Computed example of a mutant assay.
Amino acid sequence: MTTPRLPATLPGMRVGLYGGSFNPPHRGHAHVAHLALQRLRLDRIWWLVTPGNPLKSADGLPDVDRRLAAVRKVAHHPRAIVTDLESRLGTRYTIDLVRRLKTLRPAVRFVLVIGADNWATFHRWGGWREIARTVPIAVVDRPGATFAALASPAARAFAQARISERDGGLLPDLSPPAWIFIAGIKVPLSSSQLRRSATRG
């Protein structure tokens, strides 16, 4: 069995892993990606269009190709890569993805980029403690999720591993567990709201 081709990297590259179903993608997603690129001084950010969220129903979820095309319309940045890597690797859970990537590209400095809403429920992810001990994590604030994220089981479990926001550029070089909470202008959009609006329209 051959391993699917990964996006091109060089040893020492700093790569953000930004996954989601992106159904649909919107300016809020792009804001998170751009903020991570800037604050973490990333060389690349991979938009990982997933087969589906294991914690959510897949009913009505457009196929990966349609969502890839939609993401490419919003991921406007020269260092952004849009990929269906998880489908091609056959990984369904984040823990499986980060294990594979660390094996396939051991010299690349991967950082998991997630929104504060996901950090608030991170303890429900399969192997969440191992994820945090495998790659540094950047948590980007999202509207209405600040308190829940900072008071979450994951935030408490790894309280000693949190670094100051002003040290964001250091995060990709740190040995995990290490995480940061990135504040900034919040874009008040969500995929679920957009789907509801489309249904009503």
Rank of each mutant, 00 (worst) to 15 (best):
G126M: 13
L104P: 03
R105G: 08
T83W: 00
H26Y: 05
A120E: 11
A70S: 14
T134A: 03
L17W: 01
W128L: 03
F158L: 03
V108I: 01
V32G: 01
W125Q: 06
L6H: 01
V49Q: 08
R72S: 14
P188M: 07
A36S: 10
P24K: 03
T3V: 14
P62R: 04
E165R: 09
D96L: 07
P11Q: 00
P4R: 07
R195W: 13
W47N: 08
A161N: 04
S152T: 10
A70E: 13
K56E: 12
A155M: 06
S191N: 08
R195L: 15
A70Q: 11
P172T: 02
A198I: 11
G60W: 00
N23I: 09
S152N: 07
H34P: 00
R92V: 11
L189D: 12
L10G: 08
G19N: 12
K56H: 09
A155L: 08
I95L: 09
I180P: 08
T83C: 00
G60P: 05
A30W: 01
L61R: 06
L40W: 02
S21Q: 08
R67T: 03
T94Q: 03
L35K: 13
I182G: 01
K56M: 11
E165V: 05
A161W: 02
R142H: 10
L104N: 01
L112M: 15
V111C: 07
P7H: 01
K56I: 11
R142F: 03
A33M: 03
L104F: 02
V98A: 04
G184R: 04
R195E: 14
D59K: 13
V108D: 00
R100G: 06
D59A: 15
A161R: 09
G52W: 04
R72K: 12
T91S: 07
I114S: 10
R99G: 12
W47R: 04
L42V: 02
L85G: 05
W46H: 00
T50A: 15
H26W: 06
T91L: 05
V187W: 06
F122V: 11
Y93P: 12
G52Q: 12
S57F: 02
S87R: 15
S164P: 10
A148E: 12
I131S: 04
P176W: 05
A116K: 09
A30M: 07
K186T: 14
I114W: 07
A36K: 02
G19W: 05
L150M: 15
S57P: 06
R109N: 04
H77K: 04
I182A: 05
G16T: 04
A58L: 13
A149K: 10
V32W: 00
P153V: 09
D141M: 11
R67P: 03
A183M: 10
L48Y: 04
I182T: 03
P153R: 04
W119M: 13
G201W: 13
D65W: 10
F122N: 11
A157M: 05
L61S: 08
I185D: 15
E130Q: 14
V108L: 01
R5L: 10
R39F: 03
V98T: 02
G126L: 15
I95Y: 09
D141C: 13
W125D: 13
F122S: 13
A161C: 05
G16H: 06
L85I: 07
D141S: 15
H26T: 07
P153Q: 13
